[in-house]
Amino acid sequence: MSQQFYLPTLRVLAQRNEVQVQALVDPAASARTPLAQAFPGAHQVESLAQVKATEGALAIIATPPRFHQPQTIECVERGWHVLCEKPMASTSNECAEMIAAAKKANRLLAVGLYKRFFPSSQYLKALISEGQLGTLRSFTVSEGGPFRWPAASPSFFNKTQTPGGVLLDVGVHVLDLLIWWLGEPETYRYSDDAMGGLETNSRLELNYHGGARGLVRLSRDWATTNQYRFVFDRGVVTWKVNDANGLTIQIAGTPTGLRSQLVTPLTPATPDSEIRPAPTNPQSFIHQLRSVVAAIRGEGTLLVDGEEGMRSLRFIETCYANRTLLPQPWFTPTEATRATQLAAS
C-alpha cells in the first residue's frame, strides 16, 4: 500500500507544497527504502516511539490490520491526526476503542476507503438516493479474481494472524460502498468456502427495506467479471470495479446503452474546451488525502471518519458470525459431509 499508493500520492502533494513528509516508520529498512528515496528529508525510524513529529501532524497507518488499533491510539494520544488504511482494525471492538481514543484526544480519525471518492461511486449514490432512474429493484456485485497481491506475506493466509479472507479483504470496500449507498440491509444470508481456514469465495444475499434485493459474489479463486449491475425501475446501470470515472447506462425506452466517461459538471455556458474528465482512480486516491488534510485545517469535514469506517467491518463480523458453508457441487458426498464438519468446527 505504502509503495503503490501513498508514495506517488505524497510525491504529488509534496511537490505542490500541500504536505511535507516528516517521518517514515517501518521495522524493516528495506521496506522504508523506496519512500526514503522519494523523501530524503524525512527521518527514518523503526518504531512509532522514535518519531518526532509536530503536534497536529497526520499519521498514515498502512500496516497489517492487527496493528491498526494500538498504532492509532498511540498516534492520537501523541497529538497526531490519523488516516488509517482499510480494514480499519481486526474487530469492531478495536474500531470503537480507536474512535473513543481519537475523540478523547480531540484528533481526527479518517479511514482509507477511497472508493467513495470515485466520481462513479458518487454518481451511483446520487442515482440510488435521488431516484432519477426510479426505485432500485435489484443488484448484483461480482468482484475479485485469482489472488495476486504482491506484498502478501504468508501471515495474510494465517487464520491466527488475519481474521478473514476475501470478505474482509475485498468485501470491506464492497460493503462500505453498499452501506453508503443503500444503508444496512433488513435481512441477509451469508455463506463462504472456509473449511477450517480462510474463505476464498463468498456469497451474500441482501434484502432491503423497500424491496431491493442484492447478490454479492466475491472471489480470490476465479476471474469474475468485476462488475456491479443495478436494475432500477427506469433503467440499468453497470459499473466496472475500479473504473473511477466511467459508467454504462441503459435508460428504459431508449434503443441503446450509453458507455459514458464522467466529466466535470456542465453549465449552460460551459464550452467544449472546458469539459474535463472527472478524476481517475489514482486522482481519487490523491483527493482522499487532500480531503483529510483539508479537514485537519478546518476547511471541510471527513467523508469517511471512524464511525463510517467501522460500519462495513461490523457488518462483516455479523456475516462471519452467521456464516454457512457455500455448497461446492463438485464435491463427492463424503467430501461434502466432511467439509460441513470442518466449516462448523
Binding site: F147, P154, G165, V166, D193, A194, M195, G196, L198, E199
Partner: peptide
Amino acid sequence: PASLALPARFAVEWRL
C-alpha cells in the same frame, strides 16, 4: 504467499 488462497481454505500445514 499469493498462491496460498486456495490451500488456505483448510487448516493444513502449507509450505513455501
